[in-house]
Design a protein around this nucleic acid. Sequence first.
DNA 1: CCAAAAGTGTTCGGCTTACACCCATGT
DNA 2: ACATGGGTGTAAGCCGAACACTTTTGG
Lengths: 209, 209
Amino acid sequence: MNVAVLVVILTVVEGELRVLLIHRSAEPAMGSWALPGGFPQARETLADAAARKLVEETGVSDVYLEQLFTFDGLDDGTQGSVAVSYFALVDTRRVRLRDEPAWEPRWHPVQALPPLAFNNERVMDYAVERLRNKLQYTNVAYSLMAQSFTLSELQAVYESIFGRRFDKRNFRRRMLSQGILKPTGKTMARGAGRPAELYEFTSRAPMVL
Amino acid sequence: MNVAVLVVILTVVEGELRVLLIHRSAEPAMGSWALPGGFPQARETLADAAARKLVEETGVSDVYLEQLFTFDGLDDGTQGSVAVSYFALVDTRRVRLRDEPAWEPRWHPVQALPPLAFNNERVMDYAVERLRNKLQYTNVAYSLMAQSFTLSELQAVYESIFGRRFDKRNFRRRMLSQGILKPTGKTMARGAGRPAELYEFTSRAPMVL
DNA sequence: CCAAAAGTGTTCGGCTTACACCCATGT
DNA sequence: ACATGGGTGTAAGCCGAACACTTTTGG
């Protein structure tokens, strides 16, 4: 039985949650978009295969990567293939997309996806739901942010992912009370307006619950 | 690459959370206990394979069954095999264990497990954690109870699974306010003491969140 | 009438939500 | 001085935790 790995690579750019898709230029499902994926090599674990796929597509490696769910029958009920899906969060500023003209790897807004091959919509829905859950009580956002950042920047990322606005004071209280952030003591001026305090995540490793 | 299905079959008997294990009478891991599992047949989905395994071992079919996690390297790092794990909840009163003397299928208290083959401890931990989570906000317990039951019986099951006692009044409030229970209007006397109201789950289908 | 189990309300603290003004800087 | 974005506190409602007595039955 074939075991494939699928990776949902998510990022936030320009106030939008986006996912990396590749264009299928060959059958099956030629002409439609799909999540990047592949097959584990000999003596490679599933997580390693997912991480390798991520590096191949984006060049980044030390980011949040989590197993999502294992699907079968994604390739349209014909069986015989199992897809173990993962999701990863990357900071687009660190990404250099693979130059693979045939596949046209591109970021697509999650709110306006093209038709996807292999029922990849199911995988996407699952990924977004899990991401929103994890954001509530973990530090996974570290993987979407620069090393240091302002609380306004962090809030903007959260708002993009949840698709709604939060109250500034409540957002700050929640974040700071979780103890996952620490002030750097530095500030950043951005044109007009009072300079913002810069924060870092106390840990940039995935939290284990 | 081999894909196996593993099933963590849980129940509550005599105030204890227990899991169904089989005894390995052949290599690998001869002599130790393990979770039941097997390989999907041709044209069988993973969930179907897990459900079939469950029926083979216990005879029950319409119970709660959920995918847990996909492990690799369970058979000790040698790779080449992936195990998709599921967990199921059964009411022991409806179970007839398979008469397979070679495997000695038996219920083992989760709090005092024998050494398990293939790192099955990891799978167990995962299953128990998920079960506790699901109990909080879904009706999965329907799968552990008779058709109708008293709130005291339900509370006893919850206490067994969480390994601690709950306050009677708070427990009842929580359960009834979730809207997953309905009174049958009947009562049940059990020796001395005031007869208890009997309740049913409003739905005995898995909740989809 | 006593033992046994069922049933029932209220209080407190913590958490989430809603909400409006002052502060520091650039132009 | 004014425009721009950063930063702060408080009150109200909701939820979970703690806690003790009355009710109904069997023996």
